[in-house]
């Protein structure tokens, strides 16, 4: 029997569900229960003189919150340490997302909506920043892979680069009979095209200064004076440039989506470290200097 259970683990279609719906939204329900209990307690307990971190309720929420923050930040370790035991990183991520969101409620209730210009509110602010970046991350993880897959089709990044390289070679070949000014247009594309561009380019997917696009525009300007069909080489260059532009666009869409899938981590992770530092300062200052 044990053997059969193990086999089921190895291949089981019913386990085929995304991280957000893992175990029938198990962690969503846990998080909702945690939030509901906290809110109910906040409303029912009449804190004196007014709700804030220093009350018994505040201490309890603070402890829960601090433990949650530490546990949530351990996700980075869990992801990278591959142990042989039974665990599912997907379940961890599911818990990470929903419990992380519940922290917004717990942290706010812990503070009793009491903010100021101090290390305590700094820790709160950092926490919110981490959670908001995480919300973007969860959204990105849930929505973007589909777009990535659609855009990619059956091709890979390496193939696009190959295609672009081969188109460049063909462009150089095709440019041989052209005069200097026209050849310079081709060189604009073959020598100056920056595929990935700046961070802003990557995130927006807009490449207003794309050299290949400029080459196409220049060529269109020339075409206005020399009608199509009169210069075969120029027409061939034009066709090649347009094919290159299409491949570039596909590669850049891929880059854009991949950047969006990663960019938030550049806020999420460093700010988490800042949060841990601020949290430590917050706890120490509360207990030693309050």
């Amino acid at each position: 029997m044990a053997k059969q259970v193990r086999q089921a683990n190895r291949s089981d279609v019913r386990k085929h569900e995304g991280f957000l719906r893992d175990g029938n939204f198990r962690w969503l329900w846990v998080a909702l229960a945690l939030c509901a209990t906290s809110i109910a307690a906040y409303v029912m307990i009449d804190a004196e003189p007014r709700p804030r971190g220093g009350t018994m309720y505040g201490y309890i929420m603070g402890t829960i919150g601090a433990l949650l923050i530490v546990w949530l930040s351990l996700f980075g370790i869990r992801k990278r340490v591959i142990t042989s035991g039974v665990y599912s990183l997907k379940a961890w991520l599911s818990a990470h997302v929903y419990l992380g969101l519940s922290l917004l409620v717990i942290g706010t209730l812990h503070a009793g909506l009491h903010f100021g210009w101090n290390v305590h509110t700094l820790a709160y602010g950092l926490m919110v920043l981490v959670i908001v970046s995480g919300m973007f991350g969860a959204y990105a993880y849930a929505v973007l892979p589909r777009e990535l897959s659609l855009n990619r089709g059956e091709t890979t990044q390496r193939q696009w680069l190959e295609t672009i390289r081969s188109l460049d070679a063909q462009l150089r070949e095709a440019a041989q009979p052209l005069d200097r000014a026209e050849a310079d247009i081709v060189r604009l594309s073959t020598e100056q095209t920056d595929i990935s561009g700046s961070l802003l380019n990557r995130l927006t997917g807009q490449y207003p200064n794309c050299s290949t696009q400029r080459a196409i525009n220049e060529l269109a300007r020339i075409h206005r004076s020399t009608p199509r069909g009169s210069n075969a080489s120029l027409d061939q260059v034009d066709a090649l440039l347009k094919r290159k532009q299409e491949t570039l666009a596909q590669a850049r869409r891929n880059i854009r989506i991949k950047s969006l899938l990663q960019i938030w981590l550049y806020i999420h992770v460093p700010v988490t470290f800042a949060l841990l530092a601020a949290l430590t300062a917050h706890i120490i200052s509360v207990f030693f200097y309050w």
Binding site: R10, I82, S84, V86, Y87, L89, W92
Partner: peptide, 15 residues
Amino acid sequence: KKGGPACVRACPTGA
């Protein structure tokens, strides 16, 4: 390995 294939265990999104 008790937990089964590492590739599946280590996939964060269930893909």
